[in-house]
């Protein structure tokens, strides 16, 4: 052993040759460096963009409270939104956003789960072949088209059905329902397909019916995935601006019922941002609305991560 070591350590010409051969850069190592460099560069650029967006929206959004000295509490709970006269109460928009989001999610979820079960369990071949393109198509339709259909079909229908202008939360809910349905459905399909086949087999082999198997085993073990799907749908509904703006009526007042005209954070932003002067209170107030939107999307993200982690724990434990 010692002898071998001595031989290896001997600085003769042969080891020097190997030393050079093993240390010099080849094409392969240079490609490695280049690849790593490019990916770090891209990541760095993205991080920079995201960070500066966060900083920009935060600093602008906070200006309402720091420069214009509006109290945060008043901003969140005040019901009077008239930035030109200094009244900055964002509660109507916050309530409006949450109302349409939750209503759309509540209406869409049963349909989405039903469709997903049909596509994965009941008719996994023909039904899936038929519905998959439909869902992909629904995802791809631009939101302005949804809004336009809402304006041309849903609003007159509501006007006819319940009276009033037809603009309001319920019309927005309907439009959002159609918009989030494909999101929730396709993610639910993914989570149902991820349920191991042997769970289903085990259940069927015990004499459980197909319906018992779906409701008690398959849906149960896909719960965290389905919740994630619903939250993604809600995030989409919460952030949707254009289609909602076209049908909700854009009245920055506290909604009294489902058919009264209202507005959401996004609809207020899109309709107001062109009319304000940079640095003034009305402009800053809109940035504060944007800040709320940002915080909410962070919240939705955190919720998704939390659920994913819980789901993972449940399977590992």
């Amino acid at each position: 052993m010692e002898q071998t070591n001595l031989q290896l350590n001997k600085p003769d010409s042969q080891t020097n040759e190997w030393d050079a051969r093993l240390h010099h850069a080849t094409r392969a190592t240079r490609e490695d460096w280049a690849g790593r460099g490019i990916s770090y560069l891209c990541i760095g650029a993205i991080i920079l963009v995201v960070a500066s967006m966060l900083w920009f929206i935060s600093s602008k959004g906070i200006a309402t409270f720091t420069q214009n000295h509006v109290s945060v509490w008043k901003f969140l709970t005040g019901t009077n939104w008239a930035p030109d006269t200094g009244h900055i109460g964002a509660a109507p928009m916050i309530v409006g956003s949450f109302a349409v989001t939750f209503a759309a999610a509540i209406v869409a979820t049963p349909f989405a789960i039903g469709t997903a079960i049909f596509m994965t369990e009941i008719s996994p071949n023909r039904g899936r072949k038929l519905l998959q393109p439909v869902i992909e198509l629904l995802v791809g339709i631009p939101s302005v088209v949804y809004g336009f259909i809402g304006l041309a079909v849903v609003v007159p229908f509501m006007r006819h059905l319940v009276g009033g202008s037809g603009f309001g939360i319920i019309s927005a809910t309907f439009v959002l329902f159609v918009m989030v349905l494909p999101t929730i459905t396709s993610m639910t399909v993914d989570s149902l397909r991820a349920v191991p086949r042997y769970y289903k087999e085990a259940s069927l082999a015990l004499g459980a019916t197909r319906w018992q198997t779906i409701s008690r085993v398959i849906l149960r073990s896909a719960t965290s995935g389905i919740l994630t799907a619903v939250i993604f749908g809600m995030a989409r509904a919460f952030g949707e601006a254009l289609a909602v703006q076209m049908v909700i009526g854009n009245a920055a007042v506290m909604p009294k019922n489902l058919i009264s005209a209202a507005s959401t954070l996004t609809s207020q932003l899109t309709s107001g941002i062109g009319d304000t002067i940079d640095g003034t209170l009305p402009n800053n107030a809109l940035w504060s609305l944007a800040l709320i939107l940002l915080l909410m999307s962070l919240f939705f993200n955190a919720l998704v991560r939390f659920i994913a982690k819980r789901g993972q724990l449940k399977h590992e434990r």
Partner: peptide, 9 residues
């Protein structure tokens, strides 16, 4: 079955 397949319950 071949592979032990208890439910995650």
């Amino acid at each position: 079955f071949q592979r032990p397949n208890p439910f995650s319950k």
